[in-house]
Simulated assay, not measured.
Amino acid sequence: MGTLIPWVLAILVASGLKGSVKIVKEKEEYLIEGLGSYRRKLEPGLNFIIPVYDQVVYKDTIREKVLDVPAQSCITRDNVSITVDAVVYWRIMDMYKAFYKVENLRDAMVNMVLTQIRSEMGKLELDQTFTARTEINEILLRELDIATDPWGVKVTRVELRDIMPSKAVQDSMELQMAAERQKRANILTSEGHRDSAINSAQGDAQAKLLQAEAAKKAAILNAEAEQQAIVLKAQGERQEQILKAEATAEAMKIVMEKLQNDPNAREALQFLLAQEYLEMGKEIGNSGSSKVMFMDPRSMISTIEGVQSVIAQNNNTSNSDRTPYNPMELDLERIKK
């Protein structure tokens, strides 16, 4: 019996020492009570407590947690029933408040989130719940963070996952979307027809304008070409007349020189004049139109005699004045006589 007591004491001391050592993991905290009252908080690492007197009443992590909020039914401002679920990211900032300020922190968080979701959805119409999801998340985050601050909790993010209307509402929305798509299709079709008509009209107008401009340019070019042709023709006729006049003057000069130097050239001149006179009559008779020509044989002789008198007078004048005769300076008054 005497030897048993030391062993019992040794066992009690070992168990007491074991119960007095507490190893707290990183990102975790323990709350210690002594005789029913709060004493202290154990930080991560090696900690010692008084066996039997100190007790660990609560331990939890301070890392960020995910709270899965179950789907719930909500009524929008336009009296449409929808089902909404969400997910909340949060963490414990003060372990003392999380344990002593609220009973069952997780259930309290779920009920708080559900209440805030119902409140915010009741402020919006059905269409706004789909388009303003980001704004709703920001409002829920702000409101939940303020509401859970007394519990030592920090809400870091709130996300609405699914917003599901009732079956009847879904059917109505599908019909509305089908009608809206049909309306857009009709509008696009009518706009396409309108644009096509406008483009066709603009194309026709542009084509007519181009045709008018082309016709105008063609008329201008034709007028310029005709004007140029008239100018060139007039210049050609003028040049031809000048050349004929020069040729006639040169021929008369040669004839006058021959008449002055050769007395027998007068008979040859008379013969040439008579021949030219007869050729002229022949050409007139061979023309396409019908003509009647009265020719007096005596006129031929008088013409030739007139030419002979002119030549004789010019010779007398040239002999008396001793000035060379210029065939281009014929005295018209003497020819008339």
Rank of each mutant, 00 (worst) to 15 (best):
M293Y: 04
M121E: 07
M112P: 02
S73L: 08
S15P: 00
I304F: 09
M300F: 12
E305K: 03
V88G: 10
V102E: 04
I311A: 15
R118K: 15
I50C: 14
A14S: 11
T303L: 14
M1W: 10
V8L: 15
M328C: 09
N286F: 06
I230H: 13
I11M: 15
A219Q: 09
A223N: 08
E267H: 03
T131F: 01
R63N: 15
G236D: 08
E213G: 04
N111S: 14
I82E: 06
E29C: 11
P327Q: 08
D145S: 13
I117N: 06
S302R: 04
G288F: 07
I301L: 15
D127T: 02
K217W: 02
L175V: 09
G36S: 07
P150W: 01
M164R: 06
Y100R: 05
S196I: 03
E305L: 10
L126F: 09
G2T: 04
A14H: 01
E28N: 13
E120S: 08
H193R: 12
G19Q: 12
W90G: 04
I242T: 09
K336Q: 12
P165I: 07
G45Q: 05
I5Y: 11
R157K: 11
E29S: 11
I254D: 14
V307I: 12
E103A: 09
I187T: 14
S318A: 15
I139R: 12
V21C: 12
E305H: 04
A201Y: 00
M95R: 01
E135P: 01
R184L: 14
L144C: 06
D204Y: 00
V80Y: 08
E125Q: 05
T317V: 10
L141D: 05
G192E: 11
N326K: 08
G34M: 05
A225H: 05
Y100D: 06
W90C: 06
A179R: 05
N264I: 05
I82H: 04
E120A: 10
E64F: 06
K282D: 14
C74Q: 05
Y30F: 12
G203M: 06
S172R: 06
E120M: 04
R181F: 03
N315R: 04
V52S: 14
E213C: 01
M93K: 08
N199C: 07
Q235T: 11
V307E: 10
S287C: 14
R118N: 09
E224G: 08
K282Y: 08
G152R: 01
R181W: 00
A147W: 00
E174K: 11
K65F: 01
I301S: 13
D171F: 03
F271R: 08
W7E: 14
I117C: 12
V56Q: 05
T115N: 13
Y58M: 11
S302K: 05
Y277V: 09
D204A: 11
Q241F: 09
